[in-house]
Design a protein around this nucleic acid. Structure first.
Lengths: 200, 200, 200, 200
DNA sequence: GATGAATGAGCGTTCATTCAT
DNA sequence: GATGAATGAACGCTCATTCAT
């Protein structure tokens, strides 16, 4: 990476940091692109060097922390699948909480409106979450822990839906209910039952 | 009711019908107040005789069908609570489906932003849902089916959260997953367990 | 006056009282016709039984108190003209103050925009003020105190302009400067000089 | 100043010129932002690059001509204070007249409603006028022409009030009375008297 | 005379996005 | 890659006034 690339990366990082802070405080709809660039100390137009649309920022906010979860889960090769997923749920909700309720609200708005942004299907957080979870399940099939005929697609959607249901409830309650507690409860009582039929 | 009142009621009905149809087709954000009034065949300003804000229409769309559910449940006095609730869940989701996915999206957007509209807390669909469900549970406490110390508030929120979680998933899947199937599954596997501790 | 006329007069009185109170509190632009009718306890449309335009209310607010001034001055036949006018200035400004700064603001807005309301020239407070003052001066010409060739029109305008200048200053200062003090000062130092050339 | 800055300045100038002409013809309330931008040959939104509110244009219309008065008065160091002020009054009213009666009406409307626009106190023409006049009086105190204990604040307000009173009268008369004549008369008969007590 | 539902013109303002420099 | 002036579409909402009842 040369100097210019490094500077560019730094500019993007500043935009994401500034955007995250502002959305946390005020919510996505309440801020505008200029607020973000001002806070980041760059010109308004610079935003569009790094993001095609204002909405795209929200996706990028989650990219780094959530990709770290995927990396971490990959290192847990020997752990059994329900434990892995319990770990995944916990880390996922930790990330959600640390990004803040207003960012979470925006993710939900994005996710309940598939196709609302043309050519952007692949750009939704949901898509990444699905792919990441699929990867985890597929690995378990590969290493023989789960049966070959495990309905990965279906299970993935059930689990992701549960996660987004929890996120919705968190937003609905305006942060009064603890998503981490709910998550732990769900993993303890439901996860084993869901996977029982597919364990080798 | 005299002639003028009847005409007024009819005007409001036309606005709700027109609004519902347009939201179903295009989504709440994609239409404007003038679209609605044009379709209803009244002047733009007439909308504001019946609704304080554009958003308020969405609440009113659900008022009639959902209040009918409440009425129906009240007639099922002798039915036991989990059966009553199974019926409630089914009818609730039927209503949600019949209102359409775009209306549902708007309800969710409203509900994940508590307090975003000042003085509107009582105006949210969620509030009505909570009150309705509380009424059902309280009736069961009164007729002795549920224990006196049943945590009604808590149970209400758990159940409503589940319903809204399902609604979120329905929107996320863009209508591909059947909410009525999920509902049935939930009632069969979870509802009895949730209420077991509080049955007399 | 029959019953119906009495009721009508009472309705108008209620509207004027309600309007005056609301304008005093919030200012003319900040209130609407419905605010007034609600406070008066009548229907919105009733306002237009008594006033052709919202603006006309402002004129009527001043009609009674200011006509009382004219009546009072007429009784002071033997008083000399500068004393009469000193009395008039004092009572005029007392009225202005008692109507409140927001009503005064509206009078000024009306008066600096002649012809802005079609066919309404005769409806402005200013017009009444001019006529009233002219009447006082003409009486003094008649009873021989002022010369026959006194430029009544000109003097009237000079005096009215001074009064409205004071009103403007009162509004500008947001009520901090005392119009009655200014008035007294003006009468003491200027009035005699202005009329000296025309005294018989 | 580079090319872009020059172009921006030119755009603002076009907006002010277009706005001034339109207000002169029709009055501030009778025109809208789009009228102004169309006449200036720019897009509607461009107006808001240079003015936070429609009202702010009115202030800017007066900024250049009135600041030139201040500059001119500063060059008259050796002139005595009443002469300086006579010059100031004359030039001030010349500016007022050249801006036109409709612009003047708007200044008065602004000035009789202090605090009606939040955080805009410093944005009113009146504020600038007060500051400018204060500067003139303070200079005269410094160079010893006026006594140290001259009540600058009070005198400033008296004089400004007189100016705005004249402006009000001009608008009231719909331009029939000559403000410059009145001004000359006032300076001749009153100004010396007002300042006599404070001359060294 | 009273009512209140219906009207519909009217507009300021925001802001995501573009693009010439 | 950075800038920031220019764009222009988009729209909710108010409210004075009318008029059939």
């Amino acid at each position: 990476m040369n100097k210019r690339q490094a500077a560019a990366q730094e500019t993007k990082r500043k935009l994401i940091t500034a955007g995250l802070e502002l959305i946390k405080e005020a919510g996505f709809d309440a801020i505008n692109v200029e607020d973000i660039t001002k806070k980041a100390g760059v010109a308004k137009g610079t935003f569009y060097t790094y993001f095609k649309r204002k909405e795209d920022l929200v996706l990028d906010i989650s990219r780094v922390p959530f990709s770290e979860i995927a990396d971490e889960i990959k290192t847990l090769e020997d752990m059994e699948i329900t434990q892995k997923l319990t770990r995944y749920f916990h880390r996922f909700m930790e990330c959600v909480e640390s990004c803040g309720i207003n960012v979470c609200r925006q993710w939900i708005k994005d996710v309940i409106n598939p196709n609302c942004v043309p050519d952007n299907k692949d750009g939704q957080k949901w898509h990444y979450d699905v792919e990441m979870l699929k990867g985890i399940l597929e690995a378990s099939v590969k290493n023989g822990e789960l049966k070959e005929d495990t309905p990965i697609e279906l299970l993935t959607h059930i689990i992701i839906s549960e996660l987004y249901g929890m996120m919705t409830c968190w937003c609905m309650s305006d942060g009064r209910f603890e998503p981490l507690d709910w998550t732990a409860e769900f993993c303890k009582t439901q996860l084993t039952q869901i996977f029982k039929p597919y364990l080798e």
